[in-house]
Design a protein around this nucleic acid. Structure first.
Lengths: 114, 114
DNA sequence: CTACATTGCGCAATGC
DNA sequence: TGCATTGCGCAATGTA
């Protein structure tokens, strides 16, 4: 149901009126509206800042993964090289070397390679 | 300078007027305003979605770093254990083992440990 | 019912 | 000249 304009004094307040009470009410609402809009804009701004923070953290983490992966790969090669140049692999029998050396870290999660 | 209300026909258009031209202009602006606001809200929504995407990616990367760090630590221990149980460390002299084994990945970047 | 908060909407100024 | 963007007030509606 649309408004109820110009009911003169039907209600004690509301539309199309310039009573003191009405103006006071309008003034308070206008303040509330301004306040609410400022708040809303700040929230939007914070969300955009959050995106930037997260992008930054993400870049750092990706670099870290890259470095760790490289190091791990290097150590694995070292292991394999050593294993093929010696005959007593038995020294490592207490560890599940097979598993570790065949364990590709890039398959630990299902996300895209970076 | 505040508006220029009720200049009757001073301008060919503008405020406080109900000429056909004026109404057409208002109608077009109202459309533009609605359109602009829809666009604005969509952008805000997209930004929020972006935050969620980034948080998700971040979590995955952190898990990956955790796993890689653990693996690397294990391989290092293996190396050290082997090194202390054998006398011919010379086999690894072609690599900068000292550096690798003392290279703590957690110091590669300046962010907090995870 | 009272009071503030949020939201859709139109107006006008201003940006492009 | 015209659409796009923005601050603002009104009224309806939501919330406490």
């Amino acid at each position: 149901m649309p408004p109820k304009r110009a009911k003169a004094r039907a209600d004690s307040l509301e539309s199309g009126d310039d009573s003191e009470e009405y103006r006071k009410k309008r003034a308070r609402n206008n303040m509330a509206v301004r306040k609410s809009r400022v708040k809303s804009k700040m929230k939007t701004q914070e969300t955009m800042n959050r995106v930037n923070e997260l992008k930054r953290e993400n870049t750092i983490l990706e670099e870290k993964v890259k470095t760790l992966t490289k190091e791990l790969g290097f150590l694995k090669e070292l292991f394999l090289a050593h294993a093929s140049s010696t005959s007593n692999e038995a020294k490592f029998q207490n560890f599940d070397l097979e598993k570790i050396l065949s364990d590709d870290p890039s398959t630990h999660t299902d996300h895209k390679p970076c």
